[in-house]
Design a protein around this nucleic acid. Structure first.
Lengths: 260, 260
DNA sequence: TTCCGTTATATACTTTTGTACATAAGGAAA
DNA sequence: TTTCCTTATGTACAAAAGTATATAACGGAA
C-alpha cells in the first residue's frame, strides 16, 4: 500500500503545468520541434500542439517560441522564462515526492496511526539547518549521542533523547539535518583554548551584520555550508572579528536537534 | 497561480482510495445504501457499485458490508475497518493539503526561488512541539520576542532572530508551534522562588520514567498539551516528584524555537 | 520557382469513461 | 403470496479525450 499524487500547477483555475505537459516541454527542449517531441513522448501531434498552445495562452510570458517555415521548416524552442518554469516545477515536484515518501513512512496505514512527532510540513525558525550523514549512534540509558558527518568533512555531535532517535528511526548512514539556533553558536579565535563543548568547527567569516546590541556573523565552513552566529557587538570587538578572518564556531552538542 | 494535487492510495499498483471514492464512502455511511449514495454524490449507480466492488476486492479486509434483500431491500454499511481507513485518509489528506499550502507560500513561482529555510517535510527530534497562536511580536534590533498563547491559556515566549520572524512571515494571530528540547525544560516545585526565565508553566506530573542517570517527566499542562522534561534522577529525588503532583515547568525563552 | 519540414487547422475515427435503463434475484414483513 | 427496495448484472448510449490523417500556410535554401 503506497501513496501517490500528481502535482499540478493551476493558473486562473485552469490546469497549467501537469506532469504530461512537463514531459512534453523537456522533449521539445531536446528535439527543437513539437512534432518530433510528440513522437518521442509519445502522444499525437494534435494533443501536443494543443497542450503547448494552452500553456502559452495561460502564461503571462510565452513559454515556447514557435516558428513556421524557414530553413528546416521552422521549429519550437523553449524560452528562458519557460526553462525557469521547468526548473521551478522540478524543484516543487522533488519536494512533493520527498513529502509523500516521508508521509508513507510515518503512517501505519493498517492501524491509521501516525508514528510521527508533530506536523510534517513545517518551517522552523532556526537559521542553522545543516545536512549530513549519520556517522555513529551511541545509545545511553536515556540519551543518545548522534554524530553527523557534514559535507565539509566536519563532524557535528548531537545529544538527544533515546526516544527521539527511535521516533525518527535514525540509523547509521541515514541522511539527517542538524538544527540549532544561531544564538547557541559561540565563536572563538582559533588555537587559544580547549573547550568542553564537543563541536568546534573551523571556518571563515563570510559576512558580519552589526546591530546595536547584537551582531550576526556568518561562518563559511566549506562546501556551501554556512553557520550563523548571533553574538554581542562587545564580543565582536573583543575578538576583533573581521570578514574573511579564520574562526572557530562552537556549539554545545545538547543544543543541537536533529531532523530527517 | 496555485498548486493542486490529489492524493491517491494505491494497493498492489492499482488505485485503491481516491477522492471520488472517499466521497462515495462517506455518502454510503450517511445513507446506508449504494443507490442513495450514488444519487447524493452524484454518480451513476453502476459506477458507484463498481467502485465499491473494486475497493472491497483490493482491500485485505472488507470495507463495506453489502446485503441484498430484506426489510428495506437490503443495504450497505461501512465496516469498522472501513471507518478506520476513512479516518486515515482524512488525516493524510489534511497533512497533504497543509503541505501544498505551505509549499505555495514558500515558492515564488515567477522567479522560481524558494523563500524557505531548509527542507519542508521534516521530522524533528524535539519531543516538545506545542501549538499555539501568536499573541504579540516585539521586534528588537536583532532579536524578536514572540509570545505564543497556548490552548491551555498559558503563554510561552520565544526569542528568535528578527530575520527568522521575517522568514516565517509570522504575524500576530497566526498559528505557530513552539519547539524545544526536553533537556531544556527545568522543573521546580511551585511557589518557592522567582526565576529570571520568562516561561514558567504550571502543570501536573502525568508520568515519570526513571533511568539510571536521567529521568523523564511528563507534565500535563491542560487541554491535552504535555511537556516532556529530562532531569537527573538526583534532582527527581531532591524535588520529591511524584506522579499526580503539581509542578512548574520552566523554559528559557531563548531555548524555544518556532515553527509554522 | 521548387523543395522541404515544420506549424497550424480541420475532420473522421477510436478508445475510454461514465450514464441511463432494464432486469434478475434476494429476503424480510405485511 | 405479495410487496418493497435494495444489490447485482448486462446492454445500449453519450460524452470526453486522444489518435490518425489530410491539407494549407510558411519561409529559407537550392
Amino acid at each position: 500500500m503506497e501513496l501517490s499524487s500528481k502535482l499540478t500547477l493551476n493558473m486562473l483555475g485552469e490546469p497549467f503545468l501537469l506532469e504530461k505537459r512537463i514531459e512534453l516541454l523537456y522533449a521539445i527542449e531536446e528535439y527543437g520541434s513539437i512534432s518530433k517531441a510528440a513522437k518521442a513522448v509519445p502522444m499525437s501531434y494534435k494533443s501536443a500542439w494543443e497542450a503547448v498552445d494552452a500553456m502559452n495562452n495561460l502564461s503571462e510570458q510565452p513559454i515556447v517560441q514557435r516558428e513556421t517555415g524557414g530553413k528546416n521548416g521552422g521549429g519550437t524552442t523553449i524560452t528562458p522564462y519557460g526553462s525557469q518554469l521547468l526548473e521551478t516545477y522540478r524543484v516543487l515536484k522533488e519536494e512533493h515526492t520527498f513529502f509523500l515518501e516521508r508521509l508513507s513512512q510515518v503512517t501505519d496505514i493498517e492501524s491509521g496511526a501516525f508514528k510521527t512527532i508533530g506536523r510534517l510540513a513545517m518551517q522552523i525558525s532556526a537559521r542553522n539547518q545543516i545536512q549530513g550523514v549519520v556517522d555513529t549512534i551511541e545509545l545511553g540509558a536515556v540519551n543518545a549521542k548522534v554524530s553527523l558527518k557534514l559535507k565539509s568533512g566536519n563532524r557535528l555531535v548531537s545529544v538527544i533523547t533515546k526516544e527521539a532517535v527511535e521516533n525518527l528511526r535514525l540509523e547509521e548512514g541515514d541522511r539527517a539535518t542538524a538544527i540549532f539556533k544561531s544564538s547557541t553558536v559561540m565563536l572563538a579565535v582559533p588555537g587559544e583554548m580547549q573547550l568542553s563543548a564537543r563541536n568546534s568547527i573551523r571556518g571563515n567569516i563570510s559576512h558580519i551584520t552589526v546591530g546595536e546590541v547584537n551582531a550576526e556573523v556568518m561562518v563559511d565552513i566549506g562546501h556551501h555550508d554556512v553557520l550563523v552566529a548571533v553574538i554581542t557587538t562587545d564580543a565582536l570587538k573583543t575578538l576583533k572579528l573581521k570578514e574573511g578572518g579564520s574562526i572557530m564556531a562552537i556549539i554545545k552538542s545538547s543544543d543541537v536537534m536533529l531532523g530527517r
